[in-house]
Design a protein around this nucleic acid. Structure first.
Lengths: 235, 235
DNA sequence: ACAGTATTTATCCAACGGGTTAATTTCTTC
DNA sequence: GAAGAAATTAACCCGTTGGATAAATACTGT
């Protein structure tokens, strides 16, 4: 009678559940910030029950921190694969800019999470032993590139690698994270394909020109290599 | 008997009240974001009753929008006083960078408000007729400076003024708005006096070097003119 | 003085939201 | 195949919070 294998009322999958919860939480936190995020929505999005969040991860704050750590983990590991050492210095810088730009484009939630955490003055991040220990040997990679560039005569200045990294991140990050208000202010759609190409060209031109002292030439190269839209025509 | 002027139980001051409410709201929203802000705290901070917010401004959202519009209003009006037209082009750019940097330093709530609004993808700002109409003739000011710089031979490239403005804002904004997480990551206090001086020098050097093509010279000038801390020593 | 209006205070409440408790179902292992 | 552990569900709890109602107090004109 009860011979046929009864259909299960639910599946068991702790690993998968935890991942789905973190993924759903990432979306929710990046879309609504910490205070705006709703625990119930995260549960629903993860195809789970609210209780599960507490069972598998912890309370809202722990969940948020876990998401944040995951996000840092991901970008750091991709960065490690960049390996700028064997490119000639200007090309290395160009690749760094393009990587950063594309990473931000591909991972908009990362930008939102950082914004949210900065609004909280990094209150949560400070408590994270994990993130503090994973701050990358990336700065050393950049330092090496700059040194080599100066030695080879490609670069005019031995700029501080941290300043340079912050500047590159700034140029990419701000444009994207603030594109909504900037688009309203300037009455342009800054996320249109053309606009994004133009921006990348501008950033590469700006940074390389500053380092090499070849403004005109480099802005020109940047312009033509990546897009046909004018970077500098609107004068 | 009831002759002596009875002490008033409360003062009447609609204008002042409205201002106090907006100021309190600005602090609350910038400190906690839209969702995190508490209407009761705003009321308390304004030395008022919660009901007053609704009487004088409207509900939470309208209050938020009013604060945002006020913030834009303020920076736009200060910008108008900049008047870069009669400076020689490189000096004009330097002044623009310094103004932007100092404005952000003096008005950290402005940064927070913009971050908050961008997390909301400018949902509220889009509904604001006021802000859309006040988007400044600032771009034209910059365009003129760039034109003059190219004509005089100071600048090598006729860069798009909007890109330039966004880049300058980016360099200043990101450093400050993300200083909390960056400080944790890099293990430096980026808001220390020295660090801020170093940053300003770096930004001026970067942008002017790119425009003029005089990297080494300009980084050097930027370094020595504003601080004795090295911009480019850490190689 | 008196009426009418503008401003402020004092309560109240329904919905929401994070977190908990307790019961149910699946897996493991002996 | 029974017991115990792990995973999942369902239902409830209770402080918070945005917003509303109604009453009190000050101002204005007549």
């Amino acid at each position: 009678m009860a011979k046929a294998k009864r259909t299960l009322k639910w599946q068991r999958d702790p690993e998968g559940m935890r991942l789905r919860i973190l993924e759903a939480a990432k979306q929710e936190f990046s879309a609504h910030g910490l205070a705006g995020a709703r625990v119930d929505r995260i549960a629903a999005k993860a195809g789970a029950n609210k209780r599960m969040l507490y069972y598998h991860v912890g309370n809202k704050d722990e969940l948020y921190l876990a998401v944040l750590e995951g996000a840092y983990d991901k970008i750091r590991s991709e960065e490690r694969g960049l390996d700028l050492e064997h490119l000639d210095p200007p090309e290395a810088i160009r690749r760094l800019i393009e990587f950063t730009w594309n990473y931000f484009l591909r991972n908009p939630e990362f930008l939102s999470l950082l914004q949210t955490e900065n609004l909280a003055r990094a209150k949560h991040l400070k408590r994270s032993a994990k993130v503090k220990s994973m701050h990358s040997p990336f700065v050393e990679m950049i330092r090496t590139v700059v040194r080599r560039g100066v030695a080879s005569g490609d670069f005019q200045v031995a700029v501080d690698p941290v300043q340079l990294y912050i500047s590159i991140a700034a140029l990419c990050f701000f444009y994207l994270s603030n594109s909504a208000t900037l688009s309203v202010i300037f009455g342009r759609d800054l996320l249109a394909k053309d606009a994004k190409d133009e921006r990348l060209a501008h950033m590469v031109g700006l940074v390389l020109a500053a380092l090499t002292g070849q403004s005109a030439a480099l802005f020109e190269i940047a312009k033509t290599s990546k897009s046909r839209t004018a970077v500098a025509q609107t004068v």
